[in-house]
Amino acid sequence: MELINAIILLLNYTILPALTYGSQLALGAIFVTLIYGILRFANFATGDMMSFGTMFAVLLTYYFQSLGISLGVLPTALLTIPFAIFMMIFYMLTIDKFVFSYYRVKKSPPVQLAMVSVGVMFVTQAIIRIIIGPFDRRFLDGEKFILKATEFKEMTGLSEGLTIKSTQVLTIFITIVVVSIMFWFLNKTKTGTSMRAYSDNEDLALLSGIDPKRVVLITWVIAGILATIGGTLYGLDKSYRPFVYFNNMLPIFAAAIVGGIGNPFGAFLGGYVIAFAEIFLTYAYKKFFAYLLPEALEPNSMVQLLSTDYKFAISFSILVLVLLFRPSGIFEGKKI
């Protein structure tokens, strides 16, 4: 019984949150890695682009709510995602046309494109703040919980409760669906294969008759879908605040590099590696051990490896270790 309680405790406070957070990071990391692999630059506007897409989901949610449109138990935001994706892709393609394409045609070094993306980051941040402001916004409606702690306790008779938030299930479910479709597209379709070919060897792809403009276009479309969905899921689960999205760029980069930048499957796993490391290392295991150990041995400290203040620092330390020992990522050789 105590063992089950301990497992439920871990599930409730570490595994479920880590899976959720990991999914959100994974979507962002695939976005980073696709841009890096195909357009060949580190996109420092990643966090703000995700924020941009989410902004439309938030605004449209408010608008739909004012019209009385809702999805019942599901959050209205799900309904707004397709429109938000459309706006996001439109914005990305506009930026690409007026900013990035010039450097791509000129074959500028990646560093220069990365620096240009810093400029895009500034502009995107300004647009977001001018439109929606820098404030914290919650836009989750519908049913908040699938399972409440008290219900769970009643159901099972356990002393430890399990809470399942609807956003957690939605995040994990939608991530699995989106990522599966994306990998199917990249691996099994002619266009997907041509994108991987372009990413692998640009010159030979051109000699094979692959149209670079089309590859770039599709890359931005996929990136727009991933960025908007990832950002909206994060916002539903926590809240929408532009500054936080900018900061999220950092663990997302960490996830992409840990997975081996340019490798979408690695980025996907990298998201979970970062999330689990962050949460497992900062969780206070006192109660966990209280369940498992006899009373005499119960720890009197928090049994916390690191303070939660260092959450970000953990992912960055992992990144530094990976860069040191396996700069091509920990999933090297397992490219999809």
Partner: peptide, 28 residues
């Protein structure tokens, strides 16, 4: 010593994150 062997854009990301670690240590 750690990061200078990295490619230019990796170095940028690594230094960005390391700075974040420094600040979080000072902060906490």
């Amino acid at each position: 010593k750690i990061a200078l062997g990295l490619r230019a854009d990796y170095l940028a990301i690594a230094t960005l994150l390391i700075a974040e670690i420094i600040v979080s240590i000072i902060k906490h």
